[in-house]
Design a binder for these strands. Structure first.
Lengths: 346, 346
DNA sequence: ATCACGCCTGGGAGCGCTCCCAGTGCCCAC
DNA sequence: GTGGGCACTGGGAGCGCTCCCAGGCGTGAT
């Protein structure tokens, strides 16, 4: 955080003034400030000195207007901030994005869309070209925002698809594979009556995890019993309630795969209330590998998503798009692997 | 989220084009768009129709350049995103700020400052006048950022003071009072050997809560025993470790006031490991009244901060500052009350 | 000497808005 | 009939930058 000594003007200096002081033209000054190579060493030094003495910082609005780019991108979360802050997925993504942006001049804006009013305002913000690109995270199946952004010709990357044939560039992780690995792991441990608590099924990720659960059973030549499937909503309370239903419907179940750690934590509560021991009576597996998983008693086996990496990849795709480096469609979507982390709960 | 039908141009329309279509001058068109009252009903209608037909949205950069304001404010968190997301304080603040901004045209930018590099970039962003004001949350005692922003003449409001004689406008809550109420409550319940786990003492809030603890003991004519004070760091693990120290130093303690719920949760773990029952053997009180408090077993008595309200107040002060409505110094700082929420742990 | 070519350079022409001033037209009072 | 006031309007002059074109000046080939 540098605070140039000479910067105590009320009016901030303009490029013109820098140029005058350096004894060069405005064009040359601009070239130096923007690192153009076609400037003589002499002029460059003079301008750099003037910039330093005057404490010059280019005016962002003017630059944006003239050049047509704002040097900022938005990370948009169409959720109440409660969920945002509860889930490790978001924090990891933010971290990855910030890391990828670290050696750019681009600024990250984190925007919550909680109400229709906020959505509308954001739409206006986009149309007013206040940002260069948008990262959309955790979009629900029918959400029209991505298409709206495309219509406005705003570069966009999704974190998580909305459906199998997502048209907008995206980064996603192998949800079915992760879920399948988790359930296969339970089968390998000799569990036979394996239940699942799903997430809100209007999220494609939740559907995929359910699909992975079913695939594992299929591949293990195991009958799928619809009574062993209960719907949660990615909250702890939802997990608890769903687990309660499962215990009522199928008291003899011996394992549960939950589509998120938070729900697994809720399920753990319900199991405790019902007097079931984990993992002795019932094995438990979650998804996300969040802090919750490590803090549970016993520690929760979980499926790790490479959230940080996803954030970085999303940023990469977006920067490509902004720069016009839009390769073939292959390069506009990315699928990252998940990994099972076995712990005491299974 | 409106998507005007006629908006399918590649080039977005300018004010000039709107004016031409409406058959008025640029000035009149601008007046209508900005809601100036001195426009005839006829012109207004014509311009509004043209805006609708063309799908006109004013260009933010041009507006910012001409008018000198960007219609966006930043909420800055100088912490790793891990802490940001773990603490209810932040989520409440974000919510309050967003609410206060809801019927403004201002956009909220959430910015993390994790590294010196990011701080520098943010400083440049501020100097480039990309935002109209800054909300700073959770600043450590010696942090120079607020002074830097003042030097850049950027309107600023702090969420939480850095010291007793904070010069920058701020909103804070009554930390000493809350802590004192918590400890007085423990005394009233007949506890006699009351320990405390403090937060990182480079945060003024942590010092205040410790001060409140001491004041309560003083007012209760109770000796203060330095062995009953252990330093934590606002994390769960820190709370656990501090509690361990306390149990070792003073096995006979019968109550603990923790400066945050997260630390109380860690303390709970340490107590359980040591075979102490809550509240029978040791009463436990936290601070924040977060979700953690309600989920603990038994539910945690805690001190509620009006976080949402704090966010709203901060925003109010900032908007006043931006609009130049800076009243006397009284109006530039605000202290909000805390409230004890008794639950099963005490 | 002449010309062509490269390297640098200055500054005009915008970018799309807001601000403001000088009108224009109209109505009412004298 | 004249003057003053009011309601509304058009468009010039910027805001501070980037883009780009025309030109100056040296160098080497002809």
């Amino acid at each position: 955080m540098t605070a140039p000594g000479a910067a105590r003007h009320t009016r901030r200096p303009t490029l013109e003034e820098v140029a005058a002081r350096a004894g060069v033209g405005r064009g040359t000054a601009s070239r130096v400030v923007n690192g153009s190579p076609t400037v003589s060493a002499h002029s460059r030094a003079a301008v750099e000195a003037a910039v330093e003495e005057l404490g010059y910082v280019p005016n962002g609005s003017a630059r944006a207007l003239a050049a047509g780019s704002t040097d900022s991108i938005a990370l948009v979360v169409p959720e109440s901030e409660t969920r945002l802050f509860a889930e490790p997925y978001f924090s990891g993504t933010v971290s990855g994005v910030a890391t990828a942006l670290a050696d750019t001049e681009k600024q990250l804006l984190l925007t919550l869309l909680r109400t229709p009013k906020e959505r509308e305002r954001f739409a206006r913000y986009v149309r007013a070209r206040r940002i260069d690109g948008v990262l959309l995270v955790s979009m629900h199946a029918g959400d029209p925002l991505p298409e709206l952004l495309q219509q406005y010709e705003m570069p966009t990357v999704l974190g998580g698809r909305r459906s199998a044939d997502e048209q907008v560039p995206y980064v996603d992780c192998d949800n079915p594979g992760g879920a399948e690995a988790a359930v296969a792991h339970l089968l390998a441990r000799g569990r036979r009556r394996i239940a699942t608590v799903t997430g809100s099924l209007d999220l494609y990720a939740a559907q995929c995890r359910l699909e992975g659960y079913r695939a594992a059973l299929r591949h293990g030549d195991h009958p799928a019993d619809p009574r062993l499937v209960a719907q949660g909503d990615f909250t702890e309370e939802g997990g608890r309630r769903a687990m309660g239903e499962l215990l009522e419907r199928c008291p003899q179940l011996d394992a549960v795969f939950c589509a998120s750690d938070l729900m697994a934590s809720g399920a753990r509560l319900a199991l405790r209330e019902a007097g079931r021991r984990v993992p002795d009576d019932v094995a438990l597996v979650g998804f996300d590998d969040s802090a919750v998983a490590r803090h549970l008693d016993p520690p929760l086996t979980s499926v790790r998503q490479p959230v940080e990496l996803m954030g970085r990849e999303m940023t990469g795709l977006l920067l490509d798009q902004i720069a016009g480096r839009t390769g073939e469609s292959e390069a506009r979507r990315r699928l990252l692997p998940t990994e099972l982390v076995p712990r005491g709960s299974s």
